[in-house]
Computed example of a mutant assay.
Amino acid sequence: MIEFEADVPRWKQVADVIRERIADGTYPPRTRVPSVIQLSAEFGIAQATAQKVHGGLRDEGLIYTEPGLGSFVAGPRRPPSEG
């Protein structure tokens, strides 16, 4: 799954996996995504790398963080209202 010798940084590879899981419904809207510690264990990456995964997905608007509760898949976006 993760090619450690690849030209693509590990955090981007893991972010791609999580993005795919969001897209295919494995992680539906408003459900918790794996924590930094869980990502680190699942993919064999450093926690700092897993933090980059979360940060990248947050920057894309795919996940949001509730302090003290964890990170969750963002819900579907509503189209802008016409008028």
Score class of each variant (00 low, 15 high):
Pro9Ala: 04
Pro67Leu: 08
Leu69Phe: 08
Ser35Gln: 10
Ala46His: 12
Glu3Gln: 11
Leu57Pro: 04
Gly55Ser: 11
Lys52Arg: 03
Lys52Phe: 01
Pro80Gly: 01
Leu62His: 02
Arg30Gly: 10
Asp59Ser: 08
Glu5Tyr: 09
Val8Asp: 09
Gln13Ile: 05
Val14Phe: 05
Thr65Ser: 15
Gly61Val: 06
Thr65Gly: 12
Leu62Lys: 02
Ile18His: 03
Glu3Ala: 13
Gly83Ser: 05
Gly56Ala: 04
Arg19Cys: 09
Ile45Ala: 00
Glu66Ile: 10
Met1Arg: 10
Ser71Glu: 02
Gly68Thr: 04
Pro79Gly: 04
Gly75Lys: 08
Arg78His: 08
Met1Thr: 09
Phe72Gly: 01
Pro34Gln: 02
Phe4Gln: 12
Tyr64Asp: 07
Pro34Ile: 03
Arg77Pro: 11
Leu62Pro: 00
Lys12Gln: 15
Glu20Arg: 11
Ser71Gly: 09
Phe4Ile: 14
Pro76Asp: 15
Ile22Asn: 07
Val17Phe: 09
Ile37Glu: 13
Tyr64Asn: 02
Leu57Val: 01
Ala6Gln: 14
Tyr64Thr: 14
Glu66Val: 11
Leu57Gly: 04
Ala46Pro: 07
Pro79Glu: 08
Thr31Trp: 05
Arg10Cys: 08
Ser71Asp: 11
Arg21Ala: 05
Pro76Phe: 13
Tyr64Ser: 01
Gln47Pro: 15
Ile45Lys: 04
Val17Arg: 07
Thr49Pro: 01
Ile2Leu: 05
Ile22Val: 10
Gln51Ile: 14
Tyr64Ile: 12
Trp11Met: 08
Ala50Pro: 03
Thr49Cys: 07
Val17Tyr: 06
Pro79Thr: 07
Phe43Ser: 05
Lys52His: 08
Arg77Leu: 15
Gly68Asp: 03
Glu5Lys: 14
Ala46Thr: 09
Gly44Glu: 06
Lys12Phe: 02
Ile37Arg: 14
Asp16Pro: 05
Lys52Pro: 02
Phe4Trp: 12
Val8Gln: 10
Ile22Gly: 04
Gly56Asp: 03
Val17Asp: 00
Glu3Tyr: 05
Gln38Gly: 12
Pro34Asn: 01
Gln38Lys: 15
Gln51Glu: 14
Ser81Val: 13
Lys12Cys: 13
Leu62Arg: 00
Ala15Glu: 04
Ile2Met: 04
Ala23Asp: 13
Glu60Tyr: 10
Gly55His: 13
Gln47Cys: 08
Ala48Asn: 15
Gly56Trp: 02
Glu60Gln: 13
Glu42Met: 11
Val73Asn: 09
His54Ile: 07
Arg19Leu: 09
Glu66Asn: 11
Gly83Phe: 01
Ala15Tyr: 07
Glu42Val: 14
Ser40Gln: 06
Glu66Phe: 11
Gly75Cys: 04
Ala15His: 03
